[in-house]
Simulated assay, not measured.
Amino acid sequence: MSGQDHQNQDDSTLEFAALLCSRLCHDLLSPVGAFSNGLELMASETDPDMQARCLDLLNESARTSTNKLKFFRLAFGAAGGYGDELPVEEARQAIEGMFAAAGRVSVNWMPGADMLNKRAVKILLNLALIAGDALVRGGQLDIGAETGSNGIELAVRAQGQKIMLDGGLRAALDGSLSADDLSARNAAAWMARRLVVQAGGQIMLSPEGEAALVFGAFLPR
């Protein structure tokens, strides 16, 4: 690889990192902002009932921020120490904290593998994030992961009154997204596909217009 190719690759990596950081900051802005507002109200309020409501707001904002950070750490960071695998329970807790804790989306975890490699965990969490965000009026996420002699199978199914999957997200997942169209909104979907492809696997999406949104991924051994 020439020096220019190395430079282009470095630039692309930095650009992707910047887009991903923008997405994470956007998702954290709301709960952190609510926490800041709660502190301001707490400082100016003298009514005990209002102070109690401010404390509730602070607790909720802190819990939401913590849940999001735990999820992002597993989905995008180098979480779980130096081992090759993570307990599936960690992924389940992260997804439930991200969605079920808010009450808008329920999570149904289907029995399967007890341990998954870190790549599979990242893919599963990113697919769950995309599917959960597509449930604009709430709904249910069905999530499963199984390991077999041939490899790892991951499945995420979203059902709700209104499902909206942005065209850029679909393109990022099916591999038709151009480099110029990569954005903060679809960076996680692009990363999920790259992780699958780099492992020699396949990623599947349900057709547009289906009653449920279904993602699947297979990672060979």
Rank of each mutant, 00 (worst) to 15 (best):
G77D: 13
G77S: 08
G77R: 03
A78T: 13
A78H: 11
A78F: 09
A78V: 10
A78R: 11
A79D: 12
A79M: 02
A79R: 01
A79Y: 11
A79T: 05
A79C: 04
A79L: 01
G80D: 12
G80E: 11
G80A: 06
G80Y: 10
G80R: 03
G80Q: 07
G81V: 12
G81T: 13
G81P: 06
G81I: 10
G81N: 07
G81L: 04
Y82F: 09
Y82G: 03
Y82C: 03
Y82I: 12
Y82P: 00
Y82M: 07
G83N: 07
G83S: 11
G83I: 08
G83Q: 10
G83A: 13
G83W: 08
G83C: 04
D84Q: 11
D84P: 00
D84K: 07
E85A: 04
E85W: 05
E85I: 02
E85M: 02
E85R: 06
E85T: 13
L86Y: 08
L86S: 07
L86D: 10
L86I: 12
L86K: 03
L86N: 06
L86P: 07
P87K: 01
P87S: 06
P87V: 08
P87L: 04
P87D: 11
P87E: 10
V88K: 10
V88R: 14
V88L: 15
V88Y: 11
V88P: 09
E89I: 03
E89P: 01
E89Y: 05
E90P: 00
E90A: 02
E90K: 01
E90T: 00
R92L: 13
R92I: 15
Q93H: 06
Q93T: 14
Q93L: 15
Q93S: 12
A94W: 00
A94V: 02
A94I: 01
A94H: 02
A94S: 05
A94Y: 00
A94F: 00
A94L: 03
I95K: 01
I95E: 04
I95R: 01
I95P: 04
I95V: 15
I95D: 02
I95G: 02
E96S: 09
E96L: 03
E96K: 07
E96H: 00
G97K: 02
G97P: 10
G97E: 11
G97Y: 01
M98H: 09
M98V: 08
M98Y: 05
F99N: 12
F99E: 15
F99G: 14
F99M: 11
F99R: 14
F99S: 11
A100K: 12
A100D: 13
A100E: 15
A100V: 14
A100M: 08
A101D: 15
A101L: 04
A102E: 15
A102K: 13
A102V: 13
A102S: 15
A102L: 11
G103K: 13
G103A: 04
G103L: 02
G103T: 13
G103Q: 10
R104V: 07
R104P: 01
R104Y: 02
R104T: 14
R104Q: 14
V105C: 06
V105E: 08
V105I: 15
S106I: 03
S106G: 04
S106D: 09
S106C: 03
V107P: 05
V107S: 03
V107W: 00
V107L: 04
N108K: 13
N108G: 07
W109K: 14
W109I: 15
